[in-house]
Simulated assay, not measured.
Amino acid sequence: MAILSECPTCKARQSLKNKRCKCGEDLDRAKRSGRVRYWITYRLPGGTQRKEMVGTSIEEARDADGKRRGQKREGRIFDMLPDSKITFSQLAEWYFELESVNALKSIDTIRVYVNKFLGVYGDMPVSDIRPADLENLQARRRREGLKEKTIDDELNYSKTMIIKAFDNGKVGGDPLRVFRRVKKLLKGHANARDRAISADEFSRLVGECPRHLKDILTIAYWTGMRKGEITALTWDKIDMKGRMIRLEAADTKEGKAKSVPMATIVYEVLKAIVRALHDSHVFMYYGKPITRNFSQGLKSACKKAGIEWGRDVKGGFIFHDLRHSFITDMRRAGVDRTVRMAITGHAIRDMDQRYDVVEDSDKLVAIRQLEVYRAGSADVAKVLPGAAV
């Protein structure tokens, strides 16, 4: 068991004996000005190590350290569970220091929503949260004009932080029960979209796009891949000989590897792209990978093509609708459901389908079926390689 001091500049926790932090901060001066926070560290029976923030007073830290030593000596395990003083802001500091959290593709989104929550309840001790507090937050966000899904996302991302804290012994079960008790505003699948872009719309849209965006839209329309899967695509995932795009588990939202067949137009698009010498990404713009949001470029192209844009507009188009269109057209083309789900990465719940092995050859046959179906439209024929224009 020990008492640690936290540097106010770099947040490093270190021995009380240190007079100066590695970052250069004068710790003695910071302690005198009350800018140093003190932590106590100890092990629970079983070996689990805990670090507990006490405050800015060394006397309080020594008292807390002595209290935990006494509890441990007397075997009072439950008295050593998470201290009720930790606030949501302090918990968020710990949460966003975790490498596993920072490695998430959605980390920027998580930060936005958790910080919104902290703006209301950041100073509240985690143990003080009650269902009424979260229901009041829902009502407040509604008055602010936010959509139900946005409100639900704020609570869901905050709940994920609480779950992680509970699993790591940072908080008890009461706060977690509170978050689980509050009902979502948006009922199941109430926000599901049914927009599918027509062949005519797609033809007009790609006709108004710059080359780099046109290629991305074409890949999405003919593979059903998600935007993040496409922009993160690297050449080692491209099997030109086998005409497959082979994604690993880490590349997909489902967390499962999948192989996506190439339509002829996808093959031609990829073959025409000049590979960068300094970067393995497939889609580049002015020498840099296209990782940022390109919604403004898509919005501009939609306006020129006479297509309504945006989730908030009735019948408005968004990028993800290309995936809807792919799945819809695959069904209309007569592609077997098991094969469709294997290509898109959707979970297969039926036992017979789960044990029905889908080979690459099955997927290539499926994409040929889609080509035949879409070739029936003169508008799609305009964007197929070798078609007469």
Rank of each mutant, 00 (worst) to 15 (best):
K214D: 12
D79K: 12
R69M: 00
M1L: 06
L27F: 03
A30V: 14
D329M: 01
V178S: 04
W39Q: 13
T160D: 11
V114E: 14
K288D: 11
I327M: 02
N136T: 01
E60N: 12
A305G: 07
K105M: 04
D279N: 15
D194L: 06
D108L: 04
R374V: 03
R43C: 04
G310P: 10
D152E: 06
C21D: 00
H320L: 12
I230F: 02
K17G: 13
V101L: 04
A190S: 15
V206F: 00
A190Y: 02
L205C: 05
I58Q: 13
K314V: 07
R20V: 15
S100M: 08
E52K: 06
I197Q: 00
M240K: 02
L213F: 12
W39L: 08
M240D: 05
R331S: 11
S325A: 05
P261Q: 09
Y42N: 03
A375N: 15
F202M: 10
A272C: 01
S259H: 00
E268Y: 09
L185R: 05
L4H: 08
P210C: 03
V383P: 06
Y221A: 09
K288L: 14
F283N: 13
M80T: 00
R193P: 12
Q90G: 01
A30R: 09
L98E: 06
Y355H: 07
I3M: 07
E25T: 15
D362C: 10
V383R: 12
A190W: 00
I162T: 08
G306Y: 08
I348E: 06
E359C: 10
L118N: 01
H324M: 09
T344I: 08
K19N: 15
D128W: 06
Y373M: 09
A30W: 12
F326L: 07
N156H: 08
G386L: 13
E248G: 04
C302M: 13
L205P: 07
G207N: 01
G315V: 02
H320C: 06
M244G: 03
K227C: 04
P131M: 14
D26G: 06
S100G: 07
I58Y: 06
D133W: 10
D215P: 10
E97Y: 07
D65F: 04
H324K: 13
M284F: 11
D321E: 06
T328E: 01
Q14R: 06
E248T: 02
R204Y: 01
V126D: 03
L364R: 14
T234G: 02
I163N: 12
G315H: 04
L104N: 14
G334F: 01
R195Y: 08
Q138W: 13
A132F: 00
W94S: 07
K72P: 05
D174S: 10
D356F: 10
K170Y: 02
E201L: 01
K314G: 03
P261C: 10
R35F: 10
Q49H: 00
K31R: 15
S127Q: 01
S15R: 07
Q369W: 11
Q296F: 13
I238R: 01
T252E: 03
C209Y: 03
R50S: 06
R73E: 06
I163S: 14
F179M: 00
D279H: 14
D174C: 12
T328I: 00
S377A: 04
I216N: 13
H324I: 01
D79V: 11
D133A: 15
E99N: 03
L146V: 11
S5K: 15
K299R: 13
E371P: 14
G24L: 07
V282S: 10
